[in-house]
Design a protein around this nucleic acid. Structure first.
Length: 568
RNA sequence: GCAUCUGUAGCUCAGUAGGAUAGAGCAGUGCCCUCCUAAGGCAUGUGUCAGGGGUUCGAUUCCUCUCAGGUGCACCA
């Protein structure tokens, strides 16, 4: 039993009508450590006893008396404050962490449940730019966290590999695809394909018939025209190769690349089903599902030319996923601007009679913009993700050359730290916040940053390397009751809570904030308390604490998708 | 116009599912490397929590209105 539960138990023994859950709900953590480790406010009991909360707190303290697990239980105004027995607390937390090692903080709440996490999802033949960083990193972290909570997860990269844009690309290639162009595409695919795409869009102004040609080629693609299919597959291939360079740098892997095209043959069945269930309505030659009575705008599900749209494809995708994976949750990590789309989509699934509609969640996030305005590929206002990573690595290399020129594996460490900084930065704040991309911020490595956490981790590694004794949990825990050590231990105790919280809210930043907080506490401890000392008992105890911090920092970084260098 | 998100220190942001004096980092200033990695630690100042009402013993947190900014609203995804 942990200490919080003990507090609840003590409370129930006096306030017998409280359930364990209610009692746990009541317990708070005081704003400052000198007020105690746990607190119970007594306002709620004022009515029952017809006394002031402060008087009730006093009475309670008297009734509770002495308890072994707590060194002090006292009232402070309307609160009953509990001070844990630090030695027992340290022993309990560190013993457990030492036993569980790399599994410390994990849970089995997801056992037997499958969760789908759709994220990243770039468009084929378009640049992989800074705007894609959010879905890619937030999604990856959520996927990792869910896995650690015991779920079976399926990471899906829902590639944007379908739609009229491919009709344009094919048509453009038919017109201007000289051998030189082919060579250029092979060499540097995305910019070359983009050029074709941009040129086509420009020429449509002069040749309106190009619009129809694009539609024609898309239709041919849908109908399985061999030539069109071959081109499409080629575009997809070369683009993926490019994307994979970035995924490799981030260390991100997907379980499925089933993108939009994958669902193209599943559309007729969905349209039939919608019709059968009486949800379809004609409107200006197109087909819609009316949603106005649910506070949404009507959803267009089929164009007047008979081809389907985004929502329709997403409905088909969701149904396919339910049938294939029988998901417990189907998570979409997609930007906030698409909220309406997902609300409509979910409502359509609901109207189709599927109760799992509400197991589908849209994990949205704010928009990234550039200092001179919004991202605009065609206007050249774009920052490539790969460039961001390379610059971060470059900057890290400079710092290493300056501070630690003899470091082994300099290149590898520069990558770990540079990329780590980018990941950490992205996952540091609440998802919903918009932000303006700034090189200065991305390349700042001091204070609450990735390198700070990695540096702290490397520091723990260095200490553990210097340990000339075996570390075990058979130590004198009274050595770890001073403020600095105890603050670290309290922080360690909160790891699992942080993870569960991040899981509940789909918020990786809770983990990010947690590890930076742990690093801060450890650094204070480190500066205040010599770890490698001649006093063996002290060394043993402090090294145990260092080891646990080492494990938790590494696990935290791993969940966020960061690597942890042992030296830097 | 309707919908939706955001508004906390000079800047960037936390604030644990209403509670005890609202916290970090950056930027500024001043300390600490004969001492385990100074990408570090310590000290120091700043707040009408956008504004008005309401609910409550208690509101930065919940409700409502107003203001400011972002985003989305039919044949793109």
């Amino acid at each position: 039993m942990d200490f919080k539960e003990k507090v609840a138990e003590i409370f129930i023994s006096i306030e017998t009508e409280l359930s364990m859950e209610e009692a746990l709900q009541l317990i708070e953590i005081p704003p400052s450590a000198d007020m105690g480790d746990y607190a119970v406010p007594c306002f709620k009991f004022a009515k029952k006893y017809r006394k002031s909360p402060a008087a009730i707190a006093n009475d309670l303290v008297e009734k509770i008396g002495q308890v072994n697990e707590f060194e002090k239980i006292e009232s402070a105004g309307p609160y009953v404050n509990f001070f844990v027995n630090k030695e027992q607390f340290a022993e309990q937390v560190l013993n457990r962490a030492f036993e569980e090692k790399e599994d410390y903080g994990s849970t089995n709440i997801g056992e037997g449940k499958t969760v789908i996490v759709e994220f990243s999802s770039p468009n084929i033949a378009k640049p992989f730019h800074i705007g894609h960083i959010r879905s890619t990193l937030i999604g990856n972290a959520i996927n990792n966290i869910y896995k650690y909570m015991g779920y079976n997860t399926v990471a899906i990269n829902h590639l944007g590999d379908y739609g009229t844009q491919f009709g344009m690309l094919i048509s453009a290639y038919m017109k201007w695809g000289t051998p030189e162009v082919v060579e250029a595409i092979e060499k540097d695919p995305i910019p070359e394909l983009l050029k074709l795409y941009v040129r086509y869009n420009q020429e449509i102004e002069k040749h309106p018939e190009y619009q129809d040609e694009a539609r024609y080629w898309f239709k041919e693609l849908e109908d399985g025209n061999e030539e069109a299919l071959k081109l499409w597959a080629w575009f997809r291939d070369v683009s993926l190769k490019e994307f994979n360079r970035v995924y490799d740098m981030f260390g991100i892997k997907f379980d499925s690349l089933a993108g939009e095209s994958f669902y193209s043959d599943k559309m007729p069945a969905i349209m039939d089903e919608l019709k059968e269930k009486g949800l379809l309505k004609d409107s200006e030659g197109a087909k819609i599902v009316e949603l106005s009575e649910y506070g949404l705008t009507d959803a267009l599900v089929e164009k007047s030319d008979g081809s389907t749209l985004y929502v329709t494809r997403d409905v088909a995708a969701a149904k396919y996923r339910k049938d294939t994976y029988d998901f417990y949750k189907n998570i979409y990590v997609v930007g906030a601007p698409q909220k309406l789309h997902f609300d409509q989509w979910r409502k359509i699934i609901d109207l189709m009679g599927y109760d799992w509609a509400y197991d589908c969640v849209h994990v949205m996030f704010g928009t990234v913009s550039l200092e001179d305005g919004t991202l605009a590929t065609r206007k050249g206002r774009v920052v490539f993700l790969e460039d961001v990573l390379n610059k971060a690595i470059e900057k890290t290399t400079e710092i290493i050359n300056q501070r630690n020129p003899n470091l082994e594996d300099r290149e590898k460490v520069a990558k770990q730290v540079g990329i780590g900084a980018v990941i950490f930065q992205e996952l540091f704040n609440n998802r919903i916040k918009d932000y303006v991309f700034s090189w200065d911020k991305t390349l700042s490595f001091e204070g609450e940053t990735g390198p700070y956490v990695q540096y702290t981790y490397a520091r723990t590694c260095s200490l553990l390397r210097k340990a000339d004794i075996t570390i075990d949990s058979d130590v004198d825990f009274s050595i770890l009751t001073n403020t600095e050590a105890f603050n670290v231990i309290k922080k360690l105790e909160g790891f699992k809570t942080a993870l569960i919280n991040a899981h509940d809210k789909y918020e990786p930043f809770i983990v990010t904030r947690y590890i930076v907080g742990l690093a801060q506490e450890f650094n204070r401890f480190y500066h205040e308390c010599p770890i490698i000392t001649d006093r063996v008992e002290v060394k043993k105890a402090r090294l145990l604490l260092t080891l646990i911090v080492n494990i938790v920092l590494k696990k935290g970084m791993e969940l966020l998708g960061m690597e942890a260098p042992e030296k830097m």
